[in-house]
Write a protein that binds this DNA or RNA. Structure first.
Lengths: 139, 139
DNA sequence: TCTCAGTTTAGACATAGTCTAAGTTAGGAT
DNA sequence: ATCCTAACTTAGACTATGTCTAAACTGAGA
């Protein structure tokens, strides 16, 4: 069983066949899919699945805090089933490949008080950009 | 004269009236506007300015490296006329207010070699999230 | 003045995402 | 078991954001 499904069930969230397929699609890859990519892959297992259900379900999983929504590149959002807020993202500027990474310091501590403009800061995420090994070889 | 216009001129880029209005609109605020907001404000000074010109011009300024494109929140990109890549962003989760901030360390150094997956890393940006003073008071 | 590359324009088109109204499903009450 | 109800799903219309195209315009140099 998908770990994401387990986490979702803890919220007393009804696990319908559609939601299960969507959760398992999200979790079954190292890549972070867009909603359209989730729809496409989930439809291989459940062809009658509708676009609206995919969008609704992804938004609900984000609202429950079990999936992170990423607006990093291009026009569409991507969904990360790893809800651990301490990880960051590494993006290849050549091909768009995205990896989860962990940094050794908490960025919140590196923002001086006089740069906080009176905000209370709850979290921080880092986006690293560069070239993946394949794109370096191609260059 | 707008500093952004000065920087753009150095690229031998023709500064037309339309481009000047767009650049000055971008730079004349502490807020980072969406393309539609730039269009709306620029049209107050030049009503016949077209949507296509705003989008083209913003994309060209990004390509020249003099404006940074931000895909952080919501559906639309925002444009930051401060091309200094060492600054980061602080976003209020209540009202969407966005501020430029500077951290005291370079986040690239916080990513250990074994978390780099063979990438060459060229830059890193941090997105801080929290509540601005007004939204704290309202809560 | 003429020419031509670069620029601007209106509007068609494309893509991403949301909403609505109707139909379906599942679980509790009877 | 059957009914009732709320939650869920669906197709497709709709909205928002951004890109493209073809034609018109502009201005610097021949």
């Amino acid at each position: 069983m998908s770990d994401l499904v387990t986490r979702l069930r803890r919220h007393n969230w009804r696990i319908t066949p559609q939601r299960r397929v969507i959760a398992e699609t999200l979790e079954g890859s190292h890549v972070h899919f867009t909603a359209e990519q989730v729809l496409e892959r989930a439809c291989e297992r459940m062809p009658e699945l509708s676009r609206a259900t995919v969008y609704n379900t992804l938004n609900e999983m984000v609202a429950l805090g079990e999936v992170i929504e990423l607006s990093l590149e291009g026009r569409s959002k991507r969904y990360d089933p790893n809800a651990d807020h301490d990880h960051h993202h590494l993006i290849c500027e050549g091909c768009g490949l995205m990896k989860d990474v962990h940094a050794v310091a908490d960025p919140v501590e590196w923002l001086p008080g006089d740069e906080r403009h009176g905000f209370t800061i709850t979290r921080a995420s880092i986006t690293y950009r560069g070239l993946c090994p394949d794109c370096q070889a191609a260059a």
